[in-house]
Amino acid sequence: MTEHLGTDGKNHLQRLASLRRPLAAIALCCSVAVSLQGCVEMMVGGAVMGSLAATDRRTFGAQTEDKTIVFKGESRVSKLIGEAGHVNVNSFNRKVLLTGEVRDEAMKAAVEREINAIENVASVVNELEIAGVSSFSSRSNDTLITGKVKAAFVDAKDLFANSIKVVTERGNVYLMGLVTQTEGARAAEVTRNVGGVQKVIKVFDYITEDELRQLSTTQDKQTAR
């Protein structure tokens, strides 16, 4: 087709071709920049997740089992109670905490049996209430309280916030984790001073000061690798 174009036409095509090259380069640079940004985010995210995992005193195996227990527990409970109740399943170091509301004592016992039947569950703390299903506003308030308690742990400086799991139900705060007696008492004290908290229930697994030092040494070695 170019043989039918005059000089002006050929010059015009040459100018277009010269424009395409820098535009293509710009597009390539943008693509590379986006890819690099994704890589950086993955690297930073991985570093953060690695750091958080290192401060969790459970073994990686226990962490994985806890996630599996919660997944299976929520699925089984949902099928068991349907719309007749509201049950939260939390697991820390294979100890399961049940909170929420159920219709009657029979349903409360049935839920506990169902959870106990899950593989790797070490024990069940059944804190289910015989009551009507809690409202959305009540659950939203519980979420707010949980956030405030976690923030208070961070502000306290002398607590390892990532070693403690906070569960709130109807203003009652349940504390789970692997802690020493001193840490458990301190965590409960801090929690009681948070606005909106009705009661503090400790569901801790206690370790000695020597066991804590051993855990810290092991985690330091794992982090160094």
Rank of each mutant, 00 (worst) to 15 (best):
T2V: 06
E3L: 09
G6F: 03
G9R: 11
K10I: 00
N11F: 12
H12Y: 10
L13G: 13
Q14A: 12
L16K: 07
A17D: 13
S18C: 06
R20Y: 01
R21H: 13
A24N: 10
A24V: 02
A24K: 08
A25E: 11
A27K: 05
C29M: 13
C30G: 11
V32S: 05
Q37P: 15
G38E: 04
G38V: 15
M42I: 13
M43H: 08
M43V: 15
M43C: 09
M43S: 10
V44D: 05
G46M: 01
M49K: 14
G50T: 10
G50A: 04
G50R: 09
A53W: 04
A53D: 07
A53R: 08
A54L: 09
R57M: 07
R57I: 01
T59R: 03
A62K: 00
Q63G: 04
T64F: 03
D66W: 00
V70W: 00
F71S: 08
E74Q: 06
E74N: 07
S75G: 04
S75C: 02
R76W: 04
K79M: 04
V87T: 03
R94I: 00
K95R: 05
V96S: 10
V96T: 14
L98E: 12
E101A: 01
V102Y: 09
R103Y: 12
D104E: 14
M107N: 14
A110P: 15
A110R: 00
V111N: 09
E114M: 10
A117M: 00
I118F: 02
E119M: 11
V121C: 09
V121S: 11
V121Q: 10
A122F: 04
A122K: 06
S123Q: 10
V125N: 12
N126M: 07
N126H: 05
E127F: 03
E129L: 00
A131Y: 12
G132D: 11
S134R: 03
F136G: 14
F136E: 10
F136K: 15
R139H: 07
S140T: 12
N141S: 11
N141G: 11
T143S: 09
T143A: 02
I145S: 04
G147Y: 06
G147F: 11
K148E: 14
A152L: 05
A152S: 10
F153W: 12
V154K: 14
D155L: 01
K157D: 12
D158H: 11
L159I: 11
S163I: 01
K165V: 04
K165S: 06
K165Q: 14
V167W: 02
V167I: 07
V167N: 02
T168C: 07
T168E: 03
E169C: 08
G171E: 00
G177R: 01
L178P: 15
L178Y: 06
E183Y: 00
A185N: 06
R186M: 03
R186Q: 04
R186V: 13
A187C: 01
E189V: 15
V190I: 06
V190L: 05
T191R: 01
T191G: 06
R192K: 11
R192Y: 03
V194S: 04
G196P: 15
G196S: 03
G196A: 02
Q198M: 05
Q198R: 07
K202N: 02
F204H: 03
Y206N: 05
I207Y: 02
L212N: 13
L212I: 02
L212Q: 04
R213P: 13
R213N: 13
R213Q: 13
T217G: 15
T217L: 14
T218F: 15
D220H: 11
Q222D: 12
T223A: 12
T223W: 15
